[in-house]
Design a protein around this nucleic acid. Structure first.
Length: 443
RNA sequence: GGCCACGUGGCGGAAUGGUUACGCAGCGGAUUGCAAAUCCGUCUAUCCCAGUUCGAUUCUGGGCGUGGCCUCCA
């Protein structure tokens, strides 16, 4: 099955041809750990998980190997600011946030990346890259900083498709006096005593944002690799700068061959922001919904498309999953549907993949396909009480339900309906079935 | 201001130079003590204007609208 991927670098869909078919290599920019991950952060996590699963399917072991690296940025000024704000150590902020991050995304049905490197473990590699860049005339030290010399790289701007002239015209930030060129960006900056710092040829300091990904991708995937992913906002400056650093340092023609970027999402029609009060974290959403519902909702829209995160959409996903899981109940996990693979192979057309999924009649194929897509097939987990359940009086509900069952046994329908209404008024829905009466918090 | 992406039925969302996608909701029916679930059936669409074409939702140009990026936000 031919896989095509949209490549930001060429702004077109291209046939995926791995550098080494025996070893497919993918790098995705992970979180900066200073706060709960929001649902926007969940998009690349889920989207690239699907790509990882698809690659493993198309390039199966043992003939092939797929290596997926997703980093953790644990040195950053936002982290420092958060620590200062709370009066706690930087380690406390990062370790707490990393733990929370892992906990949150584990509910989303994502496979763990093969490597999850942390920036702070790779500072030496960053320093040696910076030294190399200086030696090759692509970087210079000034006032304790080291800057990348943008004019030294003629192809700068190729990934984000913009000229430095355009960028300067639109610039709205004042230019630091130590920069030779307005576009130059920081590779290394000095740290005061209260900030995290490492000894370096330029004094005690810390790395700039972009160099970590150049160093870590090289460490685990090599100087050139296949796929590099992240959110669209990272195209510029982050990825553009990564390309500049890596290519100039290693003297390569490319850093990654295929650059993939997921679009942003909105919440109920509005841009998500803290000031609007619609800043939804993954953790918030998991209080109300099973992780798999979040996963399906995220994948219903093609990854490059912007989309609107709504309760209505989540409800629909929940219904879809209930139906599918009901269909596979008791079936063994069979083959993967070829139409679904074909849809995914066309630049991860997950929307089309799910519409094909709706057409699957065979329970085993359904199970196999859902499983490839990262769904658990566990209807109990899907219907299990969410964390929001803690906000209702469970004991009372169970009591009312048993009273209603007694009323029904006596065919006292008026009393049974009155009890149902009482339960509904508490925000709880009940359902009768041959196996008994179940209940859940209404969403 | 510069650059980029997008605009399909009530909602989500594919595909396509000419023929009903699909899902959710709605509506009708079966079933159910009542509901839920399930099953059967069913209505509604391609932002506006111009051009190319026998024919455009699909290609080209313009307009309007939405979103994103323009130094650290996925």
């Amino acid at each position: 099955m031919a896989l095509t991927l949209y490549n930001t670098l060429t702004r077109s869909k291209e046939l995926f041809e791995p550098l080494d078919p025996a070893h497919i290599r993918m790098y995705v920019c992970g979180p900066t750990v200073y706060d709960y991950a929001h649902i926007g952060n969940a998009r690349p996590i889920i989207v690239f998980d699907v790509l990882y699963r698809l690659l493993k399917h198309l390039y199966p072991a043992p003939a092939h190997k797929v290596t997926y690296v997703r980093n953790i940025t644990d040195v950053d000024d936002k982290i420092n600011a958060r620590a200062a704000e709370e009066g706690v150590s930087i380690e406390e902020v990062t370790s707490r946030t990393i733990k929370q991050f892992h906990e949150d995304i584990s509910a989303l049905g994502v496979l763990e990346p093969d490597v999850e490197p942390r920036a702070t473990d790779h500072v030496d590699a960053m320093i040696s890259m910076i030294e190399k860049l200086i030696a090759k005339g692509h970087a210079y030290a000034a006032e304790g900083h080291v800057l990348f010399d943008v004019p030294s790289m003629p192809e700068y701007g190729k990934l984000s498709n913009r000229s430095t002239d355009d960028m300067l015209a639109g610039a709205r930030v004042e230019i630091a006096p130590y920069k030779r060129d307005a576009m130059d960006f920081v590779l290394w900056k000095p740290s005061s005593d209260d900030l995290p710092g490492w000894d370096s040829p330029w004094g005690r300091g810390r790395p700039g944002w972009h160099i970590e990904c150049s160093a870590m991708s090289e460490a685990y995937l090599g100087e050139e690799f296949d796929i590099h992913g992240g959110g669209v906002d990272l195209v510029f400056p982050h990825h553009e700068n990564e390309v500049a650093q890596s290519r100039c340092c290693f003297g390569t023609k490319t850093m990654a061959r295929y650059w993939m970027h997921n679009g942003h999402l909105q919440v109920e029609g509005e841009t998500m922001s803290k000031s609007r009060g619609n800043f939804l974290t993954i953790n918030d959403q998991l209080r109300d919904w099973p992780g798999e519902v979040l996963r399906l909702t995220m994948l219903k829209t093609h990854y490059r498309q912007p989309f609107d995160w709504t309760v209505k959409g989540l409800r629909e996903s929940q219904k879809n999953l209930e139906k599918w899981y009901d269909q596979v109940k008791g079936a063994k996990v069979g083959q993967v549907d070829e139409d679904v693979i074909a849809a995914l192979s066309d630049d991860l057309n997950t929307s089309l993949a799910f519409s094909k999924l709706h057409q699957i009649k065979d329970a085993e194929t359904m199970a196999g396909t859902l499983s490839l897509l990262g769904f658990s097939l566990d209807i109990k987990a899907l219907n299990s009480k969410t964390k929001a359940t803690g906000e209702v009086d469970e004991g009372l509900i169970v009591e009312l339900i048993s009273q209603r069952l007694a009323a029904r046994a006596e065919k006292n329908w008026a009393e049974a309906d009155r009890l149902r209404d009482e339960i509904v008024n508490m925000g709880v829905v009940i359902q009768d079935s041959p196996e008994g009466t179940s209940w859940e918090v209404k969403r």
